[in-house]
Amino acid sequence: MPVEETPAGRTEPGLAAAIAADPAFRVLAQRRARLGLSVVIPTMVIYFGYLAVLVSAPELLRMRLGQATTLGLPLGFGVMVATFLLVLFYVRRAGSDLDRLTQTIIARHAR
């Protein structure tokens, strides 16, 4: 079935108001906001923290761990791994917790 070729449909005003008034909806919005921030804030702290170390204490990153390997490498790659884990955390949580709540709300208000 092709998608209807009309501009994006609006939610009926009455339905939107009813959902907005639903306590479960407030819980959903709150949880999504909290989950979002619990990913966004650590990311910013880690990344800008890394950049701060990089420009202010480069000798730390220059520290030798082996023949030539420096601490900078595991630290840099570590930021990348942390980034991935944070994304995974959000996706897992949103996929179980938020989606279930959303389905409940939709089911309750669908005619």
């Binding site: 994006a8 609006r10 939610t11 939107a16 108001a17 909806f25 959903l28 919005a29 709300i105 939709i106």
Partner: peptide, 11 residues
Amino acid sequence: EQYVRSQTGIG
């Protein structure tokens, strides 16, 4: 109304 739609995807 946008807020409800953005959270639930209804419509």
